[in-house]
Design a protein around this nucleic acid. Structure first.
Lengths: 335, 335
DNA sequence: TTGTACGCGTTATCAT
DNA sequence: ATGATAACGCGTACAA
């Protein structure tokens, strides 16, 4: 089928050891034999077998990435960054789509482990006890991305959701708003749900703005439909609202859409700030003001941490990435 | 580090051959030894080494996927489908991000080849001569996804862009429109550019609608900004336009946005139909009528074809997937 | 039913 | 500077 190092050795009249040395840029051969071997390699179109290399080196130069979702800009931007960093380090990335399914996740973990990936990046999902136990038993390095683990000590990279939400709400307050509502995602979600709610509440409290149960409506997810339903519910329970913090851009766009159909002008009658800064944020009418997470950078950073961990062997510190308010046109000063 | 088949054999007091047979569900062992070995495997938490297996079986159960872009719902929906089909067949997928860069692509091809992936799916990008030669030389199976190759005979799966564009334009015509414009993507693009333009033109011609150079504006890409600029240009060169066919949803959304700022009401004054049916299509104001490509299914199909090819060894036929007009609210009947 | 031993394509150690 | 050869972990033909 494909040529082996043996074929090269034979044709170049050297031993496989010499070929190997040349391939790995070690020392122990003359310049003359080097060019001859290289010549033969070129002629044959020889490609070293990474599988055989992996078997002996115990390094596959492949990492695995677990995502709960694939068809979302949020998560593929992370992938974009991971792939970039991996490419630079000469590694490839295997993507696994868990769909938030425990069984599937475990199956993938098993698969990745059997394939002897060098490490794993676990993204945007809570790391369950069972996953952790498996990883620990399999002894395979892991980095958490856009999520964190309260119970286990695993390095992660994410933004501080509490602070980011605090910033968003504060931004609304600075703009003169006092009747501020929120459409939150799942409040049981300890990563993206609860912290954002609490950040929001803290900002209002610090500004001495009265806050009651009417201020926030809790949805199951972070999707467009959640946003359209959410706004309707919010309007019902908190009619005087003039500004809204949406826990995700999709929710914000949903709210935008609902407002349009309700004849509510954004931002004149209602200001809306989103969360994530997906590419759709700049495509809405009006373009969405939002707090951005540097998704791609986060992916790069996580992969970078993993590779450093692989080299040095010592656990890196977690990294909190900066968030930033991207001002567009969905928020208006209230006078 | 991790246990090997030897450890299992020793602890179970059998030979590695027996363990191997049990692992691979072959025959040649008693029920009694089977349960004993399985027991030991469980105790040890033994995981077979897929690398060693790959070396001997010449099958890695891994496929590679090349994408020109990662941060686009268009392409990640394809990935979604591929990953699903791969998961079902017990294979994993390595994703590579080429960024339309020839050097990078070649590098990735080389990498995938060295890793001995079982096959490759090449998506959404033209297969250059150099890529083809490499693949041919490396003798690695390949399927084209959402693209095709005029010069080389390689199985592909995609929709018929000409027909789909024809349908879109015809839909506008059926709705009573006569002044129909188009904002196209790159017309040099032989896959997604030219065929859509020609399909559009043919539909008008068949309906005996006069057609001149004013009807279509040619942009470089298929993005949101192309859409906003595109509409402005179109309006200038073809002021009487009442309906628009956009070569992508992003272009359509861009046009939607431009129309809004220009005070043009969609669909009352201008009807717009898009192309792709990305998830953003349902999130715009108004929700976008568009011709859908079954992206996820296409990915599944392509991967399915690849696995069948791997099993049977014989080249599958190319598949043309059906497109479909998704009626939402951006097109209005013209009376 | 079970075990021995060779080979898959490399790298690395020890000679020479 | 170069070459034999033993691993790496597994599958399998052959023998028992």
């Amino acid at each position: 089928m494909s040529y082996t190092i043996k074929d090269v050795a034979k044709k170049a009249n050297v031993s496989i050891a010499t070929v190997s040395r040349i391939l790995n840029a070690q020392s122990g051969y003359s310049e003359k034999t080097k060019i001859r071997v290289l010549q033969v390699i070129e002629e044959l179109g020889y490609q070293p077998n990474a599988i055989a290399r992996g078997l002996i080196n115990k390094r596959t130069h492949t990492i695995g990435v677990l995502f709960p979702k694939l068809s979302s800009s949020l998560v593929t931007d992370l992938l974009d960054g991971i792939e970039k960093a991996a490419g630079i380090s000469g590694s490839s990335v295997i993507v696994c789509h868990t769909e938030y399914n425990g069984e599937k996740t475990l199956k993938y973990l098993q698969l990745l482990s059997e394939k002897r990936v060098d490490g794993i990046i676990f993204a945007s999902e809570v790391l369950r006890e069972e996953y952790y136990q498996f990883l620990k038993k399999s002894n395979i390095p892991i980095i958490l991305l856009s999520t964190e683990s309260p119970s286990f000590s695993i390095p992660h990279v994410k933004v501080n959701d509490f602070h980011a939400a605090y910033s968003a709400a504060s931004y609304l307050i600075e703009k003169g708003h006092k009747n501020i509502g929120m459409i939150s995602g799942n409040k049981e979600d300890m990563i993206a749900g609860k912290p954002r709610i609490e950040g929001f509440q803290k900002a209002l409290a610090d500004a001495h703005i009265p806050l009651s149960e009417e201020n926030v409506v809790y949805k199951k997810g972070f999707s467009f439909p959640d946003g359209v339903e959410g706004l309707k519910e919010l309007l019902k329970q908190f009619p005087s609202v003039t500004a809204l913090f949406a826990a995700s851009d999709e929710i914000a766009i949903g709210a935008l859409s609902a407002a349009y159909h309700l004849g509510i002008k954004v931002p004149d009658e209602l200001s809306i700030i989103g969360y994530d800064n997906l590419n759709i944020a700049s495509m809405s009418i009006p373009p969405l003001t939002t707090v951005s997470q540097p998704l791609k950078e986060m992916g790069e950073t996580a992969a970078g941490m993993l590779f450093k961990l692989l080299e040095t062997g010592k656990a890196p510190n977690s990294i909190l990435m900066p968030h930033q308010i991207i001002e567009r046109f969905s928020v208006k000063e209230r006078i």
